[in-house]
Design a binder for these strands. Structure first.
Lengths: 351, 351
DNA sequence: TTGAAAGCGGTACCAG
DNA sequence: CTGGTACCGCTTTCAA
């Protein structure tokens, strides 16, 4: 179990009877052509027999680049996030880069702390998927140090088209997703609709709120019976709480359809409905967001909005790597379209 | 957006009017006492004004230790894995260490590739939570280079108590978990029982099979009507396939209770039951494993086995860090107890 | 208490 | 095609 010292390039060179510089060239794909095939093979053999592995730390110090890409996410327990990560990993692997993943739990202090750590580790670039709208100043400062791509979440409201792009960002269209979901409910005949909004510090939820309100506003005979309360976190418990509050309102303000800002809250809504003796979809229709795993196996299977998470990850990484390579503008916005998934938790309004 | 060059310690020293060595001491918690308070403050001020951040790459090269802990998992989409990760993160944070997480998707080639990459990056230690029973030779070699802890999965069958510990491992007791689950079914009166086994290359599933068989063997009037087929992956689709096969057997070999090796397969079993017109739990009882999110919101809510995932992560990290510090034996086994969670997918056998 | 200098393990430029 | 050498940014003896 002892280490017996990890072999260095010097050991390899000695064993192969060449200078370290030669050994370095022999083992480098880009420089191997500068070396005679015979010595290259000899060095390779020496390296293999010693179990030599390049010290990436030394290599990074010398090269001034680490091949590491910092990735900051809010919550790994969110399957959507994992899918984004895999898109990033896919692109990273193709470039032999290494994603360093850190989690913030949506704590602004933790965001600063993990970004700082990543920066100390000299990541070549950063993909931030955990920003709050209040983090723009901090991020701007980070951007002055290293290429940054915002994924999933941005700063401004998406609906504000006049706002110039100040960052590189890859988002999905939450305004559009919410609009589709709510229009679906309206088309089914629902006239009293409520939303279960996530915190408005997160642009995704901000966008969904905007889309929700836009859809309602476009239909004069539809009223928004939301309580105005916002979920402290996008959880089952909060969805349940918010929904329970909805049904404490007078009958004329009780919704026949609910738009939840994510599937977990939709599940909480399902619970709350059961609590007050209402059934879904018979009495109340529910739409979720994100298409979480098993949401097709709930009772009833959940109508929801699916996001192109893997592709979003890929685009984010592509943008990051091209920024690192220096051939990318300082600001860019890629907006991906959501997909509506109709299942059994929505149905036409009872006559 | 330009970098304008990242400030180094030399820049800080120059600005503070001291030698780099002094600056280094001033900024180091352990050495700051060697420096006069006045200069320490001056250096700190210079560092702050320049936005200096220690170059962890250079620091690691010089110190010979990176403060990084490699963590290799099979599947980030498995919420249980995320919980283990958080336990690790918790301990790492307490030591100001940085987990580097890599995923294998249960591909042995990928395991080798990610471990190699982690080793090149000179992680101080490694937590492996993605090994197959066939990886022992490879892992032994890795252990000769760096402290390794096996988490969740080990090599031998857990039931083989005579087998000496050859590694550091932190496992949960799968034999016991399966035994409890199956005994529960037996106590409910079920006499024809089947399991839906995951691949036996993974010690967790191997242990669950062993526990399953042990429980059956201990009850002479109970018969195992499993087909012998094994899931290619622990997914809904495979659970469904295996269960469908179960009900293609003659009536006398059709189970009234099923033990699935994880919750996803249990969900697949639920699907298959519906396909053949059977109901759960009325006709067939089902037990899952892992207590996945939302398994309490399925139809019916799933009886399952919960694992102490966060604690498992913590123990793994503690063991890893003490091994890194050099005060830990080369072999050790920590075995954590599972917890049975009874919900609605199991009930007494119909008379 | 501070400065000088060596060196961690590579890479790349310059000679030969 | 190969060797010599400087240096990436930091830490750490050793002297002063």
């Amino acid at each position: 179990m002892a280490d017996s010292r990890v072999p260095t390039l010097k050991d390899v060179a000695k064993k192969a009877g060449v200078h370290v510089a030669t050994a370095s060239r022999a083992l480098s794909d880009e420089q191997a052509h500068l070396v005679s095939e015979a010595t290259r093979a000899r060095v390779q053999a020496a390296a293999d027999s010693l179990g030599y592995r390049t010290n990436a730390v030394a290599q990074s110090l010398r090269k001034g680049t680490t091949g590491a890409l910092g990735v900051v996410v809010a919550d790994l327990a969110n399957p959507f996030v994992v899918s984004v990560l895999r898109g990033i990993e896919f692109e990273a692997r193709a470039r032999d880069a290494m994603p360093l993943v850190a989690e913030t739990h949506d704590d602004p202090a933790l965001l600063r702390s993990v970004v700082t750590r990543l920066l100390r580790n000299r990541v070549d670039g950063l993909i931030l998927s955990a920003v709050h709208t209040t983090d723009e100043e901090f991020v701007a400062e980070v951007e002055s140090r290293v290429p940054v791509v915002l994924a999933v979440r941005g700063f401004g409201p998406q609906i504000d088209l006049g706002r110039p792009d100040r960052h590189r960002e890859v988002l999905h269209d939450d305004v559009q997703g919410a609009r589709i979901a709510v229009n679906h409910l309206i088309r089914l005949g629902h006239r009293r609709i409520a939303q279960l909004p996530g915190t408005q510090r997160i642009s995704s939820f901000l966008g969904r709120s905007d889309g929700y309100r836009a859809a309602i506003a476009a239909s004069p005979d539809v009223i928004d019976v939301s309580t105005g309360a916002v979920a402290l976190e996008a959880s089952v418990a909060e969805g349940r709480r918010l929904t329970a509050d909805l049904f404490r309102q007078p009958a004329g303000r009780q919704p026949t359809a609910i738009f939840a800002h994510n599937d977990l809250m939709a599940v909480g809504a399902l619970d709350a409905l059961r609590d007050v003796g209402l059934r879904c979809p018979d009495d109340v229709s529910i739409v979720g967001y994100n298409d979480a795993p098993l949401s097709d196996h709930l009772d009833p299977p959940l109508t929801t909005v699916r996001l192109p998470s893997f592709e979003l990850g890929r685009h984010s990484a592509q943008l990051a790597f091209s920024a690192i390579a220096g051939d990318s503008p300082d600001a860019a916005r890629i907006m991906l379209a959501p997909e509506f998934v109709e299942r059994k938790s929505t149905r036409p309004l009872n006559p």
